[in-house]
Amino acid sequence: MAELTELLWIVAKIGAIIGPLIIAVAYMTYAERRILGWIQDRHGCNTVGPFGLLQPFADVFKLLLKEVTVPASANKFLFVVAPMLALMPALAAWAVIPFADGWVLADINAGLLYILAMTSLGVYGIILAGWASNSKYALLSTMRSGAQVISYEIAMGFALVGVLMTAGSLNLSDIVNAQAGAFWNWYWLPLLPLFVVYWISGVAETNRAPFDVAEGESEIVAGFHVEYSGSAFALFFLAEYMNMILISALATIMFFGGWYSPFTGIPVLGPMFDWVPGIVWFLLKTAFFLFCYVWFRGTFPRYRYDQIMRLGWKVLIPVTVVWLVVVAVFHITGFGPWY
């Protein structure tokens, strides 16, 4: 009986994470279109509902009611499985994310490793979708995306090694707790180069602008999901936005002090904001990084593919390797409030 109640509790917690997450994805698409609209001096979607707030639901119903077509020469099984494989790791990674002090589904010791393992699985959905579609454009996109994700995973992994060296733990809650205090205690300051590398590789990992050559509308139509329609396409869309939110949440946890208030340690402002619950800060910081995603999309032109590879291998990875040595020196000398 005790086992059953525990199981029900876990299922309820999973629901409490996934439900708001899906709503967040829906409104992320809305926010993206509005912000892009403002950046480009136009309105964006403002017709369905007040301020266009019901637009995401209209999109969802449209996609769900459309027919899912399977190309005649496609590999049927893998074609149907691929979108699920794209979504599954994007959801599973949320199990170890601490939203506030103690608000975590699975408080495991190897949390950081688990995150890296799950984010590295997302590429299977893209690769299999491209191959199973049996289409030239989809296959080209698969090749681009596969090589890009593997390259940037290395830089991202190294950047996170710096975090775990500084925090001395792989547990995400411990990493946030190690950053307790004012905002200059957070890891963005001693690990600034690693933070920049992490954020750039995070954008590249999620195949977003300016690294969105896997989609490349102007050259390869829409890339790996060119043959997908209806709800199968919606799954890819969901996975992409969930990964964006995940990368933003991770940036918050690793470098921006998770649920800690940015005003701690400041004379008047600090006590003034003491009553705000930790999750609010966590969500605000995550929202800031999500805004950056849209901001980049509205600002930067797409990279050329060889420049993407050059940036990943010849710039980001050497920077992380050098900074890991610096972090080791910090660690031995007990530098600043961080070590």
Binding site: L116, A117, S120, L121, I127, W131, M143, V149
Partner: peptide, 20 residues
């Protein structure tokens, strides 16, 4: 987790790449 990270996340992706 290291098995998933290294073999599934990296090695098998490259395998698939070559096979395709």
């Amino acid at each position: 987790i290291a098995l998933v990270l290294v073999y599934v996340g990296a090695v098998m992706v490259l395998f698939l790449f070559v096979l395709m």
